[in-house]
Simulated scan of single mutants.
Amino acid sequence: MNFALLAKESWRVPTQEASLLFKFLKGKYFRRSSFLDGKWGSNPSYGWRSLLQGQKILKKGVRWRVGDGRTINFRTEPWIP
């Protein structure tokens, strides 16, 4: 159940970009990337380490839509299974 809660909280971060939490985490831990590409960084907080555990769960099952194609990086994205 703990992993499910971590995944749920980790899902909230990238889906609520207007929140203060998102803006804080974006500035500190994943400034030039997306949440799913976020790394440990230097001296990570307990909350950020917990969100990274949820991030691992999300990466196993999350898929994104192509849309208009502006956000696709075909060199680094695993777009072919």
Rank of each mutant, 00 (worst) to 15 (best):
K28E: 11
R12F: 04
N73M: 00
K59P: 01
P78S: 01
V13G: 00
S42W: 09
F74G: 02
K39G: 09
S33D: 11
Y29M: 08
K56W: 06
T15H: 12
F30A: 06
K8G: 13
S45N: 09
K26Q: 12
Y29S: 09
K56D: 09
L36W: 10
P44C: 06
L25M: 14
K56V: 08
Y46L: 13
G69H: 01
W40I: 13
E9N: 11
K60M: 05
R65N: 06
S33A: 14
M1C: 12
F3T: 11
F22R: 00
Q55C: 05
R31W: 14
F30Q: 08
L21S: 09
P14C: 01
I72G: 04
S50T: 09
A4H: 15
K23F: 02
F35S: 07
I72D: 05
I72M: 03
G27M: 06
K59F: 05
K8T: 15
P81C: 05
N73R: 02
L6Q: 12
S34H: 11
L52Q: 10
L51A: 01
N2D: 14
S42F: 07
D68T: 03
D37P: 03
N2S: 15
F30I: 11
W79T: 01
I80K: 10
F74K: 07
N73Q: 03
R31Y: 14
I80A: 04
A7V: 06
L25W: 10
A18C: 07
T76S: 08
S50M: 11
I80Q: 08
K59A: 06
D37N: 14
W79V: 07
Q16F: 04
K8R: 12
G41N: 07
P81H: 02
K8L: 15
S34C: 09
S42R: 13
T76K: 11
S34R: 11
S34E: 13
F30N: 06
F3N: 14
L51P: 02
K59L: 14
R12Q: 09
W48K: 06
R75E: 08
L5T: 12
F30Y: 10
Y46S: 13
G54H: 03
